[in-house]
Design a protein around this nucleic acid. Structure first.
Length: 246
DNA sequence: AAATTATACAACCGCCGCATT
DNA sequence: CAATGCGGCGGTTGTATAATT
């Protein structure tokens, strides 16, 4: 059964173990983790081998401090998705889910980062409560019936812009003319956020007509669970799911 | 300088979904 | 249909290092 293997090494990996694992994967590729330890001459369980590769030895991993745009994206995606670290990491080339989780828990959790997209909750940094209260990700209810969506033409243009961008390695984000990632906000704004954008005069590229008169609870009731994937508190249809995780 | 506390992050654990038998 | 094994995920812990007292 899981985790019942006795006599295998635990704890920090030695340089020799790293070399053995690296050499094995360079020769045979990733996968078949149950065979890796024996074939590579390692006295480690399959999970330990996989984790060491995925989180540390893989040459594609990006080292060093998180850049400002990465932090910004983590905050925005966490606000949207909650603790879906692998999904969030999937939008950050070279960053692992463990890295993102660790960064969030140590650098962002104790700050009021989740307030940043809710104008009703946003505080002035001088407010004594600014660094004390933690706001959980708000449920976002989305379905083909009611989420705000850009036109196909708009998506094409922004996908092309993303593909042509040299500053952003991924081609799956939607960028504005300044190279800012914006798909998350255009596709997933709730009514409060739409109101805020209207106040700020930022509604040009948003189709507001689909919001209609529904309250949040009515939207929740309107969701056909058979047609939507469930992701924690977030309900996604296939179309939107493909945007987040192509 | 030593002791204590806080921080960062590597690693482990238990659980889950899926495929296979 | 149930049992089993696998890869993968998120929560949590352990520990080395840095900062503070």
């Amino acid at each position: 059964m899981e985790g019942s293997s006795a006599g295998v090494r635990k704890g920090a990996w030695t340089e020799e173990e790293d070399i053995l694992l690296k050499k094995y994967i360079e020769k045979h590729g990733e996968g078949n983790w149950h065979q890796v330890s024996s074939k590579a001459g390692l006295n480690r369980c399959r999970k330990s081998c996989r984790l060491r590769w995925v989180n540390y030895l893989n040459p594609n991993i990006k080292r060093g401090a998180f850049e400002d745009d990465e932090v910004d994206l983590i905050i925005r995606l966490h606000n949207l998705l909650g603790n879906k670290w692998s999904l969030i990491a999937g939008r950050l080339p070279g960053r692992t889910a463990n890295d993102v989780k660790n960064y969030y828990n140590t650098h962002l959790l104790k700050k009021n980062v989740d307030r940043s997209f809710d104008p009703d909750l946003r505080l002035n940094p001088s407010d004594p409560k600014f660094n004390t209260k933690v706001i959980k990700p708000r449920p976002q209810i989305l379905s083909k019936k009611n989420f705000v969506i850009c036109s196909d033409e708009y998506m094409k243009i922004n996908t092309m812009a993303a593909a042509e961008s040299t500053s952003t390695p991924t081609s799956n984000n939607f960028l504005d003319e300044n190279g800012e990632i914006m798909w998350w906000e255009n596709l997933m704004m709730n009514e409060d956020e739409v109101d805020y954008h209207q106040q700020q005069g930022l509604t040009d590229d948003i189709d507001l007509s689909v919001l209609g008169e529904q309250t949040a609870n009515e939207k929740l009731e309107a969701i056909d669970e058979d047609n939507c994937d469930t992701l924690g508190e977030l309900y996604l249809d296939d179309e939107l799911w493909n945007v987040i995780d192509p």
